[in-house]
Design a protein around this nucleic acid. Sequence first.
RNA 1: GGAGGGGUGGCAGAGCGGUCGAAUGCGGCGGUCUUGAAAACCGCUGAGGCCUCCGGGCCUCCGUGGGUUCGAAUCCCACCCCCUCCGCCA
Length: 424
Amino acid sequence: MTVTVLQRVRDDPAAVRAMLAARHFEAPLDRLLDLDRRSRELRSEMEGLQAERNRASRGGPPTDAVKTRMREVGDRIRAVGEELAPVEAERDELALWIPNDLAPDVPPGAGEDDNRVVRQDPERALGFPAKPHWELGEALGILDIPRGVKLAGTRFYVLRGAGAALQRALIAWMIDHKLDAGLGFTEIYPPSVTRKETLVASAHLPHFDENLYRDDDDDVWLIPTAEAQLVSLHRDETVPVERLPIRYVAHTPCFRREKMSAGRDVRGIKRVHWFDKVEMVVLTRPEESRAELDRLTALAVDVCEKLELPVRVEERCAGDLGFVATKGFDVRVWSPGVGEWLEVSSCSDGGTLQAERAAIRFKRDPRAKVEHPHILNASGLALPRLMIAVLESYQQADGSVLIPKVVRPYLRGRERIAAGEFSL
RNA sequence: GGAGGGGUGGCAGAGCGGUCGAAUGCGGCGGUCUUGAAAACCGCUGAGGCCUCCGGGCCUCCGUGGGUUCGAAUCCCACCCCCUCCGCCA
């Protein structure tokens, strides 16, 4: 599973070191190289002994003298094996900490601020002072943060009345938006919980560990995104080549402890522990993944455009790319209440990393050697931030909020959430 | 949660301590035959790793992890998963 990573590290440690530096990512590369060398030494010693034993035990009962000698060989195999096991275990564990290669054209940079802006629409002014969503939502009785906190703790919230319906409508519309794109998307509804193995396959583990909710007793983990489930859907399978590209869209809740960002974005629902998201995952032939990344990004952008929200697209720099992304774009929308460009989608070409970890393969023809597909993921889109942008952008001077035209059919024609309608 | 049955190659299904990485069938690939196709016949057909003088050599994998043995797909233990019945339940 980690084998390809080990080969990368072994064949060209300098390149891996450069990648780590570009990502500003710390990984125990030297230790890994050491363990790899040591484990190969021990394994080759052990395999020699195993070959000797196999020769002796071929073809029937051996003489007592051979038995005696083989008893000794067996002891040595055991001894070497005992030395080898912890070395390989640590090697495999560390190998999981090596992030993916970067595409050669990824812009350099340390973080978000160094991203390359690909497109930025003008911010749209409302013509009156914009309220932030927490004020709007509370006034309209459609967003109840205090009661969410009462039920589940800090950074949880409750949607009420047309607020709940609006989110439901946006979800349904965004799924249909993918299904109607003519790209052969299949809608998936996966479990919201998963097992550790799934999260290792998607590479959320080990590095995302402190952001994950789990019950270790039962090996039950709350998913941080549907991506994990969609990636593992075909785990341990060789998919028929004619089925590629495989495009999935799923709506799930997502759970994140947000431990590292405690204290950031505390007001409102921009950063919460639980949120809904429509997610796309595509398995494709390697040579087609770049075009696919553009397609997925375009789909995310199209959602924003159809909602008539100002869009900003950033190409993420090396330091801002996630663990699995070889290249990727963020899509943001302008939200006048909070006065910022909110990240509503992240679109990534994950190359073969997840397919390697998940053992997903394909063959170009029956006699060809197996290959790993490229796996891409893109949000399409994340709900709380979209809700923020919609509420804040569609607010009216009288305190009501208009419903975006494209989702009205999903709200039985509702055009407006009026003040006083849902207050308690 | 309780009782029982079972997990073997792409699929089906033998093997139950000694050349078994695994019979057989199906499927797939190549060939013979044919104007072409089908049928028939013949051959090939798992994955991963290490080493290589690039000819190949070797190792591992029969749900997972341990154990017994000179030797384990085969025996023992634990766990996981699936099926059937009972219980409980949206």
